[in-house]
Design a protein around this nucleic acid. Structure first.
Lengths: 151, 151
DNA sequence: ATGGGACCTCTAGCGACTGGAGGTTCAAGC
DNA sequence: GCTTGAACCTCCAGTCGCTAGAGGTCCCAT
């Protein structure tokens, strides 16, 4: 019992790349582990658990600050879990906003793509729609709400 | 006719910030305009049109390389617009992939959030689900397909 | 003893901007 | 003509969540 894990072991066990694990450490998400005489990182079970936690939360799309909050909460069992609820609901709301925006985009894009029947670029309706700036700039709340977020 | 527009005029007309316009110029998306004696940028109608084009394409979520391609196409009317079709359909496919992933996330997250009835963090089911790394790391295609994309 | 894979640190880069510092120019009002 | 102050200029750093590479060291099996 209590034998240590290399960073590679941890990477294989969790599916998080070694470089990313080191980055988590630098960011303070994962505590710095013990080192071997030669300077290699030597992890224990607690690290494995914590890294798994981080990975799950990332998979669910939680942003880094939210993950910090959840980790903090997880290590203080006497606190109220209302915080966790709040973080989770905020994340759901964020996802819903992105879904609405993406669905709107998809609809408009499909309409645009359907419009053009092929031929020379000079008559392409896709290009025409894009070039038409008569619409003025967009102020509708759907776009404003999500902003530019790497859609 | 032919009076020039300042970068601020262009920004107001298109809704693209002045800093972003300068950045587009540095990236080669927008040709460098004439300058006043004092060095201020002096744009013409062509710039306005091109910037509007870029903005529309960004609003529809096209990535930068796709926009370059579309701009290139738009300035060569004799070419085949099949390229534009291809770019648009690829963009729709990308959006669909993101939608599927987001919908899956939303479902799982809602399930997780609903599970916990409140109380102390030590018994919080949200935290428990996140901490449970017994699932091993995720290899299902839905997650693999989209990767980490700022969801 | 040696080979080669895993590990180390440090730095830079991704996409698509955004913000700030520190300085110059323009246009309107007096 | 002069003053003000808003708008403009360039350059650099930061955003988010990693990822990749250079250049070197360590560990372990043969």
């Amino acid at each position: 019992m209590g034998q240590t894990l290399s960073i590679g072991d941890l990477a294989r066990a969790t599916g998080v790349k070694a470089t990313t694990i080191r980055w988590y450490e630098a960011e303070g998400l994962l505590p710095a582990p013990a080192r071997t005489e030669g300077g290699h990182r030597a992890y224990g079970e607690a690290h494995l658990g914590r890294l798994g936690f981080i990975r799950h939360a990332r998979e669910l799309g939680f942003p880094m600050p939210a993950i910090r909050e959840l980790l903090d909460l997880a290590s203080h069992p006497e606190r109220d879990c209302a915080t966790a609820h709040g973080v989770a609901t905020a994340q759901i709301a964020a996802i819903d906003a992105k879904l609405r925006r993406l669905q709107a985009l998809r609809g408009e894009l499909a309409r645009v793509a359907e419009a053009c029947g092929g031929g020379r670029a000079g008559e392409c309706l896709i290009l025409e729609v894009l070039a038409d700036h008569q619409h003025g700039h967009c102020t509708d709340p759907l776009h404003a709400e999500a902003g530019r977020e790497g859609v």
